[in-house]
Each structure stands twice: as C-alpha cells, then as structure tokens.
Write a protein that binds this DNA or RNA. Structure first.
Lengths: 237, 237
DNA sequence: GGTCAAAGTGTCAAATAGCCACTAATCGTA
DNA sequence: TACGATTAGTGGCTATTTGACACTTTGACC
C-alpha cells in the first residue's frame, strides 16, 4: 500500500464537526439551602443570561474530559471540588444557534466556605438557590441540565452519603441529614438516616463535638481512602 | 453595537475541535450466552480490528445524538433496538491517533432473532460472546467501554427487568431468569426473582404457554405503555 | 396410571426499614 | 445548684422485604 492508498483508507472526520463543550452543575449547601453555581455569559450567543460554568475543551491543556471540567471549575472556584461525576451528554442540532453542539455535563459538589472568597472575586459567578433556578432565564438548555442533575442528586441523597461533599471537612450528622432533606425536599427519619450512615462506614468520628444550643453533636469527617478527590463513574451507592 | 463589535463578542469555537463519534454496545442473548455486536474496521486507524458499531454524527441527517446512535444501529441490524440508553462519554487526547476525540456511548438491547438475517447480510458485523471479548484485540478503548457497559448491565439485572429487551417479544420467566443469571454470573433464587418481576408490574401474561420438557411455562410480554421504543435517561429501576 | 422434569407456590426465618418514645448532654436562668 | 428548654443520640417495637428451600402442579412420555 502506498501513501496515497493509505490516506484514502483513513477514516476521516466529518468536515464540519459539532462543537464540544464541557459544563458542570456545581452544588453546595449554604444558609440551609441547596445552591448552584451560575455564571453570567459575557459573549454571544445568549450574552447576559445565566449559564453553567464550562467551556470548550482545550486540546493543548487537557488530556481528558475530566481535565477540562476540573480546569473550568478551578477557574471559578479557585479549588478542585472533592466530588466530580459525569452526569449526561446533551447534543443536538438546535440547542445552540451556532449549529450542532455537544456538551458533556458533570455534577460536582463542594463546601461553600472553601471557595467563598474566590467566587466573590470572580465578578460573573454567583451561587443561586436551587429553588430560584426556575425563575431565571438560563442560557441554552442549561435549566434542563440542572433539573436532570438534581434528579440524580435526589437519588444519591436517598441511597448514599455523597451529599456530604457539599459540606466542610468536619460536620455533624444532623447537619448532613438536613442537607439530604433539602435535596430530597422532605423530612427523613433520624434513626433510619443514622443507621444508613453507620452501615456505609464512610464517616469517621473526629472525637470533637460542636455545640450551638442543646446537646453538642459529634463531628465527623469523610473516611479518605485514596487522595482527597473523588471521580466517580458509576451510580451504585 | 455594530456588526464588527457583535462578531468579536461572539463566543467562538476552538479552531481544531475534537472529533465526535457515537458508539453503541448492543447486547443480545443467544444460545444461552450474552453476546455483543462488533464490527470489523475497514479503515484506518485500527483497520482490521474489531470495534463497536458507531460513527460520526451527521450534521444533516441527525437532529440529536439519539438519532445518530439509532441510525448507526439500524445500518447494522436493520431495525431500531427496543432499548437504548446513554452509557458514558469517553474523551481524551490519546484514545485515537488522529487527536483529541470524544465518543458518546450507548448501551442497547435487542432480541437476537429480529436482526439475525440482516446481520448475516452485513459482511463486517458479528455477534461475539461477551466471555470472548477479553481474547480479542479491540480498536481504541472499546474493550474498556464494553466492560463498563457490562457493569451497568449487571446493576440492571439485579434491580430491574431491563434485560428482558434482549429476548423476543414473548418469553417465559425461567428464560428471563436465565438471562439475568448469565449477565450477573451467578444463580438467582427462583422465588425472589419472580417476586421482583411481579412487583414491577411491567410484564403481562399473554395467556399462552410454551412447553419443552416438564411443566409448560407461561409466556409473558413487556407491557407497552408508550410506543415500542424505550429511551432511558436515568438509572433508577 | 406412574414417573420424570421443569414450572410455579407456601411458608418460615432473617435482615431491613419505619416509627416514636425515651435518655443524654449542654446552656441559661432562677 | 436545680430545673427547664433544646437538641443529640438510642432502645426497641412493628411492618415490610428478602432469602431459602421444600412442596405442589402440570404436561409429556412410556
């Protein structure tokens, strides 16, 4: 086979390939509410609307999609969120005026305090209470993406303790239970909740207590097998 | 704002955008085995290796990623599989020699018989027993993708009756149980299995029976709310 | 009619989950 | 220092779900 034949046997890309972006639905828990990080778009299309943090893959900076989402999240928050999981990939001809586009979406969780100051310094980024998302006009199909991320998060709150990543390093069980309740949208049974936590064996007692009013609560921390960053691929508890 | 300003405020795509492909892991059940549809690559790169059915998005033919995966599957099987669900999106700099690439992957299930003749007519497509996937040298990261799809399918077999889509329209519960057992790789308790099926209320008794040896078994069919094609987005049972 | 083989059921024990009342620890105040 | 208010955490009962396995049913074939 000569070079000419070799090249013509090559599987070529479509001429006008779709746009590829990566977007993240970053949740946190603050002031008793579930909040989502949104960014005000400074460019067309959809300039001025609120959108998910994200952007184009950088062929030079990124080796993988995870690199891209982490890079984008660090730009806005100053840190790498401890929990990042791929959510779903939305793609189609009509979701972006510029033409066929694909966005690989991630769900991420972070403690509010660890990125509070950095976010304040980024003029266009804001924590928006999840309840208020429906009242904003979001760019593209980002509202649908947020709803989808929330549905998944509800499943996590029911069957896992993943929502703990939305809290600071040390937290109490009543705090964690409240995060779950806010996510699910209804109260949970204290005893059942604690049983689940125990059986999962993912939290460790720090020995410390925190008291506000009433009996002081035990402070727990996530058991860190592995490093401090969790990339999750599947949905089992 | 004049047109010049407008255009420069536009959020432009990266010059050399990643390749975007869609791939499908299509499972079926035949001769007591779980099988995966593979296609022999006829073009470089990876020419001659076995690969997942899939290909580039067509900006003219496809309105969505689902259109793309369905189009590709119909090319190979002659029909639209009754169950198609997005699996995961793999992307990175090094998974394809041609450069940065992204593949949006789907899991699909189909009855063997409905596409048997068409697949035989497509020279390059073959059903490969899942057990033998490890012994083949697959193109790109397709082996990893198949393993990932299988892990998810195991979860489905444990908590849902999705594997029924790998059987013909009418099937018996012992048959379905065997499909589940083959997927999971270990035997299931007959009573527990039947209880789960009943509670799901997704199967209907056709009134017919099928007998081979021993007591004849009741034939069931999936309850078809909606049309005949299932696109699933989330992972709840 | 008896026997074989596989389908399908009855039933009991074990594990799990929901519920709610009770006890425990701390603070403020009389 | 005792007592009430308040929130953390536990005991223990009941209801539901799951696993296990023996038993019954049905039809085929001799």
């Amino acid at each position: 086979m000569n070079e000419q034949e070799f090249l013509s046997s090559y599987d070529k890309r479509a001429f006008d390939a779709p746009l590829v972006t990566v977007d993240a639905v970053l949740f946190t828990y603050h002031e008793g509410q579930l909040k989502v990080l949104l960014v005000k778009r400074s460019a067309h299309p959809e300039m001025g609307k609120w959108a998910l943090p994200g952007g184009f893959v950088s062929e030079t900076e990124d080796r993988s999609l995870e690199d891209t989402v982490v890079r984008k999240l660090r730009e806005k928050t100053g840190v790498i969120p401890p929990y990042v999981e791929q959510l779903y990939t939305f793609g189609g001809r009509d979701r972006d005026k510029r033409g066929w586009s694909v966005t690989v979406c991630y769900t991420a969780l972070i403690a509010h305090q660890v990125c509070e100051s950095h976010i304040e310094s980024v003029a266009d980024a804001r924590w928006i209470p999840f309840d208020r998302v429906g009242k904003l006009e979001l760019a593209f199909d980002h509202e649908e993406i947020i709803r989808f991320a929330h549905e998944r998060l509800v499943q996590k709150a029911l069957y896992s303790i993943v929502p703990a990543y939305a809290l600071p390093e040390k937290f109490t069980l009543p705090e964690l239970q409240h995060v779950h309740e806010v996510i699910i949208g209804k109260p949970l049974q204290k005893k059942s909740f604690r049983r689940r936590i125990e059986q999962a064996e993912l939290l460790v007692d720090t020995g410390e207590k925190r008291s506000e009013t009433g009996r002081p609560a035990t402070l727990y921390r996530m058991r860190d097998d592995s490093g401090s960053h969790t990339f999750v691929r599947n949905l089992e508890l």
